[in-house]
Design a protein around this nucleic acid. Structure first.
Lengths: 97, 97
DNA sequence: TTTATAGTTTTAAATTTATCAAACAATGAG
DNA sequence: CTCATTGTTTGATAAATTTAAAACTATAAA
């Protein structure tokens, strides 16, 4: 029984937990997963009701952790959930959110 | 596709994430799971190396969330991971920690 | 070019969380 | 009873996190 594990892997897992411990980010991730495709930031804003700068902050947090990817088109940004990456470490987690 | 869900269920899930976002608590939960049976607080202290009052604080947090249960025997306390309860909301999560 | 829109960054303040020393219970041992 | 042990609670501080206003960047539209 091996108690220790790679620091990197652990760090990623813990940051996923950190991300999901905040209600706003939890809702964002949950919505992205259930919608099943990328969403525009404005679309997210309509559903979540967070100040735009706070939203930007949370999205940056999720991006830095590696849970989402953003794409710019014109002056809009689209957010994609990195489902595979999350599933790789915690299979079945997203559908339970 | 239902985006909303019970507040209670969501709260429990988020508190699990909160609990596991802290390295000390993450380690405690991970160890309890892998050991597979209850552990004495002192036994935990030997493995985790946290100040005893901080350990007590983290264990109280985990207890209040409902992730562990404690039993007193003499002047020792034994900690049990509420595996079933956690598995019920996030099956397979514990073994991936 | 000018104006409006979409989103980011900065900054400051508020809130939450983690840490540890010290005082405190409660139990067992001598 | 007295002392040592195990763990909790309190209180004070430090550190991290969240929030939102304001200034800013970049692009589209008029």
């Amino acid at each position: 029984m091996d108690i220790k594990q790679s620091t990197d892997a652990t760090a990623f897992k813990q940051r996923i937990f950190f991300a999901l411990s905040e209600p706003g980010r939890y809702t964002i991730v949950r919505m992205l997963y259930h919608v099943g495709h990328e969403m525009g930031c404005n679309e997210l804003n309509q559903h979540v009701e967070i100040d735009k700068s706070t939203m930007s902050y949370h999205l940056r947090t999720l991006r830095e952790i590696g849970m989402i990817t953003t794409r710019t088109q014109g002056r809009q940004k689209f957010v994609t959930l990195n489902t595979d990456k999350i599933e790789a470490v915690f299979p079945g987690l997203l559908e339970r959110l």
